[in-house]
Design a protein around this nucleic acid. Structure first.
Lengths: 199, 199
DNA sequence: TGTACATCAGTGAACGCGCGTTCACTGATGTAC
DNA sequence: TGTACATCAGTGAACGCGCGTTCACTGATGTAC
């Protein structure tokens, strides 16, 4: 057949994808991440990853790209973009959820100097930024959308990190959600209420 | 004399403080940080730090405590607390400055799971939080001060991290300052203007 | 359809490295008498 | 004031570890004829 489907043998089929998925699993389960550890867990020799990634940093960037896309998909995929301040708050809840559900990946994506020479990575970050900006522009047309998008992103990002670091003493997920919502409520400018005025 | 002043000899006088300062210097100059490297640079044997810190994590916590205090001092020391939204914006500018001036220290303080068993560290973080909360309560008495303090801190924190990671494409310090100010302006609730109404 | 061969994704052993930590030790310090 | 001694902050050598990376290699794959 020669298709790219399952081939768990010697010639692996798609070791590159397997390595990325394995690494993501390891990040999620809290294991320390290294090229050697990923190869080990993927059941492959120490040198094998070098067929697919020039060095460790390249694998890291691939993970970051994956994470950025998944985050964007979590936020934007499957639902209409927010049309009210309340729904923008829910977007922030989603953002913080992602960070808390995948802390190691989130830290890898944002918690360290990033390789700006990786185009794919820069583009994935840009796509996230653009989406947030378009949302804010649509919900708050009367304000400066660039400043608001930065504000909204920063606010969600800061909440994510401070919760991740345990600086905001919330005990469970529900409490965190409430806190994120009320933080956004405390601060977003008023909008025309979409429930009473439909275009 | 027996004082604690300079004694660069064998019995060192205050190796603990020297190690902390040396480590801070190394973080600032971008060198990789390790117990061995710090000892080396302090001109002392590899084992010497273990007289003063039970393990590597203890030194890290000492650095975090130092950083948290210095940040609080940067923000609160020497000036009156903010009384207007504009001055709150300047507080945020100060916060972001700190992060950009000491990126490695800031990441050490906030960018990784923190040792919550270290009382001094927890207290230093708490003091920062309390100060921000009291500021927000004073400036925005009509709003929920807890939510606003969380919002203000998260916003500054998120701006700091996103700028640190180069996600907001600002080129120089002045541009970043402008951006931080306009972000806060875009979002903070109005206050009674302290210039026209003095209590 | 069958054979020769180039390709290339893997192997496994080895390199040098810096790390955290431990250990028995040494020698300066300060105190008791 | 002088000596004996306990203390303790340092030394330096060594441990075992996991890491990133390189290398010559092997053997499965797929293509040319």
């Amino acid at each position: 057949m020669g298709s790219t489907s399952a081939r768990p043998d010697y010639h692996h089929g798609d070791l590159r994808a397997t390595l990325v998925l394995t690494a993501l699993e390891m990040l999620e389960s809290g294991e320390t991440f290294s090229l050697r550890a990923v190869a080990r867990r993927a059941g492959v020799s120490t040198a094998a990853p070098y067929r697919h990634f020039p060095d460790r940093e390249a694998l890291e960037s691939a993970l970051a790209v994956h994470g950025l896309r998944e985050l964007l998909n979590d936020l934007a995929g499957g639902t209409q973009p927010p049309v009210s301040a309340t729904e923008v708050g829910e977007l922030a809840v989603g953002y913080v959820h992602f960070a808390l559900r995948r802390p190691a990946l989130f830290r890898l994506m944002f918690g360290q100097p990033c390789d700006d020479s990786n185009d794919e990575r820069v583009r994935a970050a840009g796509a996230l930024h653009d989406y947030l900006q378009s949302v804010m522009a649509a919900v708050f047309p009367q304000s400066d959308p660039v400043a608001l998008a930065t504000a909204g992103w920063s606010l969600a990002h800061g909440l994510a990190f401070l919760h991740l670091d345990g600086k905001l003493h919330a005990t469970d997920q529900a409490e965190i959600d409430v806190r994120v919502r009320s933080t956004f409520d405390a601060i977003l400018p008023p909008t025309t209420d979409p429930d009473s005025r439909t275009s």
